[in-house]
Computed example of a mutant assay.
Amino acid sequence: MGKRYYGEIWDPYQERCNDCEHFYCTCDKEKKKQKVEHIVKVEVKPPKERHGKVVCNSICGNLLLNNQTSNLEIWKQRARTDAIVNISVFNNTRSTGSIRVLVTRTGRSPVEFTVPPGNTNSASVDHVDSITVSQVGDGITEGKFCLDFCFVIFDEKDKGKEN
């Protein structure tokens, strides 16, 4: 057995560790095992606060679809903001066909649903451009619709800053 130096085996060709002054050091191995972490500072600027007011409104109406008027646009977005619309459509029991509701959306897939005679169907849809109802089948289709919609009107100073 070799010469002992401070509780360790002495090897004349072994250099001491610079950190802990031991001959057979484990601190070098531990340093290599540790992941090197780099701290990167990133400046994130918060988005500019936009001031606006939420405007909500309701529209209700009657539907009469037949062979002459089988397709009817009941609402179209005229403002340049995103609208959220709650759509409710009732189809009368006397109707001979179903009502198909088609909601077109800005940059998104359209939403479509059908309302059979004697039933009501509804949906809440965002980014609405227009709402069209059409008759499925022949004859006369009668019903009612109600739309509750909300959108944000931004202040004039924020005009052109929309995301």
Rank of each mutant, 00 (worst) to 15 (best):
K31M: 04
K32C: 09
K32P: 07
K33V: 04
K33D: 03
K33E: 03
K33T: 05
Q34D: 14
Q34K: 12
Q34V: 13
Q34F: 07
Q34C: 13
K35G: 15
K35R: 09
V36R: 08
V36P: 04
V36H: 07
V36T: 09
V36F: 10
V36A: 06
V36Q: 07
E37G: 15
E37R: 15
E37S: 14
E37A: 11
H38Q: 13
H38M: 09
H38G: 14
H38K: 14
H38R: 11
H38C: 15
I39T: 11
I39A: 11
I39S: 14
I39K: 04
I39W: 08
I39L: 11
I39Q: 08
I39F: 10
V40M: 04
V40E: 04
V40P: 06
K41H: 06
K41C: 08
V42K: 06
V42F: 11
V42S: 11
E43G: 10
E43Q: 12
E43C: 14
K45Q: 13
K45G: 11
K45W: 14
K45I: 12
K45H: 12
K45D: 11
P46G: 15
P46L: 15
P47G: 05
P47N: 09
P47F: 07
P47D: 05
K48C: 07
K48G: 05
K48Q: 08
K48F: 06
E49R: 06
E49V: 09
E49D: 07
E49W: 11
R50M: 01
R50K: 02
R50F: 02
H51S: 01
H51A: 03
H51Y: 02
H51L: 08
H51M: 05
H51F: 02
H51C: 06
G52M: 03
G52F: 01
G52Q: 03
G52V: 02
G52A: 03
G52D: 03
G52C: 00
K53W: 02
V54G: 02
V54P: 05
V54F: 06
V54Y: 07
V54N: 11
V54C: 09
V54D: 03
V54W: 02
V55A: 06
V55S: 00
V55Y: 02
V55E: 04
V55D: 02
C56P: 02
C56D: 03
N57F: 10
N57K: 05
S58Y: 10
S58G: 04
S58D: 14
S58N: 09
I59P: 05
I59F: 09
I59L: 13
I59H: 08
I59M: 10
C60W: 13
C60T: 15
C60E: 14
C60M: 15
C60R: 12
G61R: 00
G61F: 01
G61K: 01
G61N: 00
G61A: 00
G61T: 00
N62A: 05
N62C: 15
N62D: 05
N62H: 06
L63C: 01
L63N: 01
L63I: 00
L63M: 02
L63S: 01
L64T: 02
L64Q: 01
L64H: 02
L64K: 05
L64V: 10
L64I: 12
L65Y: 00
L65M: 02
L65K: 01
